[in-house]
């Protein structure tokens, strides 16, 4: 007989730097590998999404106003915090049926991915910007700027690495995001929110919801104050894709589909950062 009763963790959402429960009051059961219930997760509603967009919009400008160096440092800080809580995440992945060594590798790859993108924070502008030799007496340059607020689906597989691999290329470039965690196994996402919360990422830059993709996809792709939608499903049903694209047409939303089959391989790509960037070209006369 156990000496004490274990304290079970309540999984909430992460919005605007706080951990609210869903406004709907709804929850769904999260099962482990043996179909046992391991936790309840919030079944977020469109209103939760709406609130998250408000938080993301509010944070985006400030996040983008941080220096690139600072954003890089903050991403690095996330990696540091994750490193410190490696064991916790490995343990959290195990109930899903992930073998210890695989879980460990996923956490380590996640940390390395964060560090990889942290390094890009002050470099992608140089690689993907340009000075343009125009024929008139003007100084002309083009630099990437964040698209704004991005909604995204985390992949179902690799609930931690997938999530972080989706979030990081978005936020490294000064965007804020609302990400719907892996539906089947959302718990590491919420634990990751705790890491974000303790690692200098301003509230609202990353907002993590849990719930059903089918319920939320319409809202996440149609919201008029969301500038882009990112998903990585390896296979997409044509009708489903059509629904996403049609919603995107409402406000000329950028739809970024980057299919990934296997997250255990490194999926980092600076070109992915540019998918959430707009090129701004500035002209200025050159004279005395």
């Amino acid at each position: 007989m156990a000496d004490r009763i274990n304290v079970l963790k309540t999984y909430k959402t992460y919005v605007g730097g706080k951990f609210p429960r869903t406004e709907s009051g709804r929850h769904y059961k999260v099962y482990g590998k043996d179909e046992e219930v391991i936790a309840n997760a919030c079944q977020c509603s469109r209103k939760d999404f709406r609130d998250a967009v408000v938080a993301a919009r509010g944070a985006q400008n400030g996040w983008n106003s941080r220096s690139a160096y600072n954003r890089g440092q903050i991403l690095y800080r996330i990696a540091e915090m994750l490193e410190g809580r490696k064991t916790q995440f490995v343990e959290e992945l195990k109930p899903l049926g992930i073998h210890h060594r695989t879980a460990q590798k996923e956490v380590e790859t996640t940390i390395d991915t964060l560090i990889y993108y942290a390094g890009w924070a002050d470099k992608y502008q140089q690689v993907f910007g340009s000075i343009n030799p125009v024929a008139s007496n003007h100084f002309n340059f083009s630099i990437p700027e964040p698209t704004g607020v991005v909604s995204a689906f985390a992949p179902e597989e690799s609930p931690l690495l997938g999530l972080v691999s989706v979030i990081t290329p978005i936020i490294v470039g000064g965007n804020s995001c609302i990400i719907l965690a892996s539906q089947r196994y959302p718990l590491p996402a919420i634990s990751f929110a705790e890491v974000l919360h303790s690692s200098d990422v301003p509230g609202g830059v990353v907002n993590i919801l849990t719930g059903f993709k089918e319920e939320l996809v319409d809202h996440m792709t149609s919201h008029m104050d969301v500038n882009a939608f990112f998903f990585t499903d390896p296979k997409v049903n044509k009708e489903y894709r059509k629904q996403i694209d049609e919603n995107a047409a409402l406000n000329v939303k950028r739809i970024v589909h980057h299919p990934v089959n296997d997250w255990s391989q490194h999926q980092e790509d600076p070109y992915l950062v540019t998918k959430f960037q707009e090129i701004k070209t500035t002209w200025h006369p050159v004279g005395f």
Partner: peptide
Amino acid sequence: RSGVVWSNTYNQFDPTSP
């Protein structure tokens, strides 16, 4: 928030300029 900013000029175009 726009793709082109003309500072102290306007409506300049060039093939090298996105």
